[in-house]
């Protein structure tokens, strides 16, 4: 039970409140300093440009595919059917009735606009956010699979399994993620795509090399986390399970791993939070994730301050949600 009113503080209330005030004063001054600095350099804040990078309304034009005359404009509630005809052809267009540009009897040439309508469309930032989420999710799933297999192999008695796991972990942990992304894309990617093409198959998009590099990278750390988790489960648990006639696999699946998983949730969450942040590196191999999308917006809208703050806030939202979700899982799997 977490009962705050029962917590005794080491200082009197007035002092405590004073220091709370100091905290907010610091926070306020930091923001003010940044604001004053931007005024000094005559930065024009243009936050109003930000919403359109999330959602914007796109105008869609419906054009005639034939020359001829408008034979009929038939309005029905929100929709209308425009029929265009000439001596040889007759074509009907069903359009939303919000902006019809022609009337019955109008002469129409090929390519003329018959009607327009506006549709909500995800802006580039929202698309980037989606790519970031997609990359992270796939990398997390594959990372868990690699990590569980790796973790079990790491504690195996079989030298082939054990040494493979050790080599994998040391190799991956010993080099920067950026280098690994380059290797996945420019070395392995080139090899795989050229091989695929020589067999007449389609190339794999760069996104999947990005996912592979992240999954591989995070898998190594998850391997170590899983190993530590398994080893932290008391030997008595394995002995009890085995003494009941369970095989090693059954014991792992039903007894050790479920307990280990619960114990490793916090470090796992930390690992996946850094994975989400690391996905921002994928922009360099032409994956248009959140940061790359942000940079593209900045080059056109010229509002770097707003956009980079926005990107940071979005990353914070994702990582914070993940850590909330993990806390929920921890509570849900609690046994006392």
């Amino acid at each position: 039970m977490n009962n705050k009113s029962n917590t005794r503080r080491s200082m009197p209330p007035w002092k405590y409140n004073l220091w709370v005030g100091v905290f907010f004063a610091i926070l306020f001054s930091v923001f003010m300093l940044i604001y004053i600095a931007t005024i000094r350099i005559e930065y024009t804040w243009s936050w109003y440009k930000v919403p359109s990078t999330f959602l914007n309304r796109e105008v869609i034009e419906i054009t005639s595919e034939i020359d001829g005359k408008v034979a009929q404009v038939d309005r029905k509630n929100d929709e209308a059917v425009i029929t265009v005809e000439n001596e040889t052809e007759r074509k009907s267009y069903t359009v939303p009735a919000e902006d019809i540009r022609v009337n019955q009897g109008d002469l129409i040439y090929y390519g003329d606009t018959l009607a327009t309508y506006r549709k909500w469309r995800a802006g580039i930032i929202l698309q980037g956010l989606w790519i970031t989420l997609k990359c992270s999710l796939f990398a997390i799933i594959f990372g868990i699979i690699i990590g569980v297999i790796g973790g079990i192999a790491r504690i195996s008695d079989n030298p082939a399994l054990k040494w493979s796991a050790i080599s994998y972990v040391e190799l991956i942990r010993g080099s920067p993620l950026l280098v690994q992304i380059f290797i996945w894309y420019f070395v392995l990617g080139t090899m795989i795509n050229q091989l695929l093409m020589s067999y007449g198959m389609k190339e794999i998009p760069s996104l999947w090399y990005g996912v592979a590099s992240l999954a591989c990278f995070t898998g190594a750390y998850v391997t170590e986390i899983v190993r530590a988790g398994i080893q932290s489960i008391h030997r008595g648990q394995t002995e009890a399970a085995r003494s009941l006639g369970m095989t090693y696999g059954q014991c792992m699946r039903h007894v050790v791993l479920p307990q280990a998983m619960r114990r490793i949730l916090p470090p796992l969450a930390g690992q996946f939070i850094s994975l989400i942040k690391d996905s921002s590196l994928l922009g360099i191999i032409a994956v248009r994730e959140l940061l790359k999308a942000t940079r593209e917006v900045v080059t056109t809208q010229l509002n770097p301050f707003e956009m980079f703050f926005t990107a940071a806030a979005l990353y914070l939202v994702i990582t914070f949600s993940l850590s909330m979700f993990v806390q929920y899982l921890e509570r849900k799997t609690a046994t006392t």
Binding site: H234, G236, Q237, E239, A240, A241, S243, Q259, R262, T335
Partner: peptide
Amino acid sequence: EVGMVFQSFNLFPH
């Protein structure tokens, strides 16, 4: 076929 009872119980806590 051989049941075993341990000093520290070793029940599965989850």
